[in-house]
Write a protein that binds this DNA or RNA. Structure first.
Lengths: 341, 341
DNA sequence: TTTTTGTCTTTTATCGCTATATTACACAGC
DNA sequence: GCTGTGTAATATAGCGATAAAAGACAAAAA
């Protein structure tokens, strides 16, 4: 079957059948009123009968109004696309929306970060007009390197203090971290654990917000409460278990993703620790499913629609040769009755 | 900014700059060894310096080896892409994988089912070589109607007994329902509620499996245990609440999606009903997040990778003018320590 | 009758790229 | 000096669609 696609019906074939010229067919199919009603109807019927469809590539080529934009989603496990975090997929929705609004095409691709220089490999192998990268992760240097040669990039993530050649879009992570921590402090919590791998730019900023809130409340930072769990499935769970086993005194957790928060809650409840009575938990992302969690998760909302829109805008600007700025999205704390205390 | 994309550098421009012909540039950029090493290097450097990129449309057009495939995901709420069920998004991943493997492009689109004839509208408005529909839902008749004129369709869903003009891919829903129910019966449960809207083809089949399992165990069907919750966010929650309020005697729930199962568990636990001690719950889909749920969810797994592959295969066959068959995927019951009893 | 107008249709040129065929040139061997 | 061989670059010919310009024809106006 591979490649054996049989020669498709062309517009010229259809024209021959209808006894008119190619352009007349083209116009008839486009519904132009420059062709006689009957002729139009006849051609349309003929096209339908013969299951004719215009060659998308030829059309796009001629009209040259359609860019191909790739979205790279790093997948955690090779061969299995059980995406590490639903947030990324929800963001993808926002991007799809924005891309379609602009009339462009969205090429979706999955990649395996572990395969060495994955982004570059992808760009070389495929033909795209621009790339949106979801998940800056710890790849800052690599992305910078790619941006030297390929500037049609737009990245979801955080602005890095150091030299940065590519534009990012992301929530105001510092403020988000601050709001989450503030909320916990307002509930009377004092021993707030931080669950997240601060090496990642976004997480580092959320951590900064967390520290600011504590500082303002005159609470000294406590190293035993810092839990650098990586973004892996079990990390949130294991880190929390460890926290308990080590006998650390804590009455709240700020987890840097909803997934982490859920895993943490699972670990807590397994040990009979009540949420939020004994330990309050706040997450990040406000993933769709969080409202259904048990207990419903208090979380910092990242706006996917707006995020997608800005990512696409930045990319189009970059394609035009501009150097778009890093953008910050509003953050909103979604308080749900229980988990957050 | 819109449309003001400045004239891009062409290959001919680059050729002029390098003092060679267009074809030489083309070959040099393709890394062909038909051009002198030095020439090749020089051209490549020049291209990089001037940030030249080949016109994707022209290239695709010439090579004509690239189809544009659209995936339609019905979104529940207009303007908000908080997708009703994470399973759909995970399936999207499987599709992306398969499409890329075949070297085609995946055009992602979101639609609003409520806008009348959404699928047809989409097909008419966009130019695609084929459409994958995620979510057959209650649209069987409408899809059939579209398939009359447009046969490049591939649908995730179930085979409908009645006249069906389009191919589907889906898990063996009857078997899945059977396995789930069987599992609950083996745990000694006898009063198993069914949570799902049986008007939908897939759900109807799962229900059939449920009934078969009960029949084999000599348990009479009980109408009060049938809960036709629709696929909406709160449906699982509300239906379960009602079940409790009505004082129905039940010791297990088979929910037709993990989302429903989670919502049900939330409702149960709010009333102090323990899961699985008092009521065991089994879901469907085995969504990534289910493992993290509290308690971890026992669920019927639908294989997204395989599903995506088959959806794409069917679509390519349909584009070639064949009439591909409806396919059934294996189902596997994933038993997690707690929820399922 | 001639001109004008209007409606429908065809001709022509083109989008930017790449594959194929062809040419240009250098150097070996006889 | 001529042919044969190999390498490197060029010229040419589309891919299939569409838009713009040009043409054909009939009916209305002068």
């Amino acid at each position: 079957m591979k490649g054996s696609r049989k020669r498709a019906l062309l517009m010229s074939d259809l024209a021959k059948m209808a006894g008119v010229s190619k352009s007349t067919v083209s116009r008839a199919l486009a519904g132009s009123d420059l062709v006689n009603k009957e002729t139009r109807a006849h051609i349309q019927k003929l096209a339908a009968e013969h299951n004719y469809r215009v060659n998308t590539n030829a059309r796009n080529f001629f009209l040259q109004n359609c860019l191909t934009i790739a979205v790279l989603l790093p997948s955690a496990n090779r061969g299995d696309w059980r995406i590490s975090d639903p947030f990324f997929l929800e963001l993808l929705g926002g991007i799809a929306e924005a891309v379609n609004e602009k009339g462009h095409q969205l090429l979706l691709a999955k990649t395996h970060p572990q395969t060495g220089n994955w982004i570059k490999e992808f760009i070389d192998a495929h033909t795209t007009d621009g790339v949106i990268l979801i998940g800056q992760g710890a790849q800052h240097d690599k992305i910078n390197e790619i941006a030297e040669h390929f500037n049609a990039l737009s990245v979801w993530g955080a602005k890095v203090d150091a030299y940065q050649r590519y534009p990012t879009v992301g929530s105001d992570n510092e403020l988000g971290g601050y709001k989450a921590t503030r909320h916990l402090l307002e509930q009377g919590r004092r021993r707030i654990a931080f669950l997240g791998y601060t090496t990642l730019p976004e997480i580092s900023l959320r951590h900064a917000g967390y520290r600011r809130a504590l500082r303002e409340a005159d609470i000294a930072a406590d190293d035993s409460l810092q839990r650098p769990a990586r973004h892996s499935k079990s990390a949130g769970y294991l880190s929390t278990q460890k926290l308990i086993e080590e006998g650390v005194d804590f009455d709240a957790i700020f987890a840097v993703s909803d997934l982490f928060a859920m895993a943490a809650i699972t670990a807590l409840q397994e040990r009979g620790i009540r949420v939020p009575e004994d330990v309050a938990v706040v997450g990040y992302d406000d993933v769709a499913i969080s409202a259904f969690y048990n207990p419903p998760l208090t979380s910092v909302r990242q706006d996917r629609s707006e995020g997608g829109r800005l990512l696409v805008e930045n990319l189009l600007a970059a394609i035009d040769g501009e150097a778009p700025p890093c953008r910050l999205l509003d953050t909103e704390l979604i308080v749900r009755k229980s988990s957050g205390g």
